[in-house]
Amino acid sequence: MVRIPPPALPVRDRRAARALSPMLTRLAEERATGVLVREHGVLYLAEGRVVHAESPLAPDLGVLLTAHGTLAAAAWQRAAARAPDPARAAEALLRSGVLPTGALELCHLDALYDAGYFALAPSGTPGRFRYGAGPRLGPLPSVPVVALERETLRRRLLLHRLWPDPAADSAPLIRADPAPAPAPALPVTPRQRAVLDRVDGVRTAADLARDLGRQAFHTLVDVRRLTAAGRIAPVPADPGPPPAPPPLPVTTDPDIALLKRLRDALEAL
C-alpha cells in the first residue's frame, strides 16, 4: 500500500521574508497608530504593532467565543456595544473576568492571525491608512507587523502544498465522489467530517467557518485537503446565461440511405 504522506508544515524562511505590503512596513517602522483598511480586511495598529484584525472572510472573536457556548451571546453583545471599537470589546471582557485570561488571550491571538491572513491577501486596490488615537497597546497580546507577515506567508505556503489551486477557498463548495485511486483514500478526520457534512453547493469556506465557529484558516486547511482527496470541489463560476442555441437546420433531404440501414438493422434483431 503506497500512501503519500501529508506534506510537512512549512517552516518560515527568514531570508525569504518579504513585505506583503510596503505601506504596512513603513507604518511599522514609523510606529504608527491607526487603522489600515485593505480590500479583504482591516488591521488596527498601535505604535506599529498589530493589536486587532478583522476580515469579512474570518469569524470574529465574538463568533469564536459564542459558537460553542464559551461565552453567552448577550455577554458578547454587551461588551461590543460598550466598547468604542471592536479591539476594546475583548479588553472589556478581560476586565470583567467572565473568561479566564489564557482562554481570552488564546482566542484573541487566533482571531488576530486568522483575520490578518485575509487582510494581507493580495488585493486589487491600494490600502488606506487612517491615523488616529483609537487603537492602543492594551492588556491583550499584540503582534509585530513582521511576525504577522511571516506567518501569513507561511500559511499561504502551507495551503499551496496541500492543494495548489486556490479556487476552493472562495467559491461555493459541492461534494464530489473521490476518483478511484490506486491507493485507498485517506480517511476523513472528524474535523474534516464536520466541514464535509455542511458542504451544500451554496456555502463557501468562509460560511462554513462561521457555521462551525472555527477559524477560517483552519477551515481552509480542511477544504484544501478535502479538495485534494477529491471529496469536494468548487462550484464553477456562473458563466452567465447560456448562449442562444443555433437555429435548427431546415432540411428537406433526410438521409434516406441511413434510415434504411437503421430499419434493416432493427429488423435483423
Binding site: 460553542h68 482562554a103 488564546l106 482566542c107 465557529g213 477559524q215 483552519h218
Partner: peptide, 8 residues
C-alpha cells in the same frame, strides 16, 4: 489544551 471554543 482542551478549550471550550474551537482551537487546536
Amino acid at each position: 489544551v482542551d478549550t471550550s471554543f474551537d482551537s487546536s
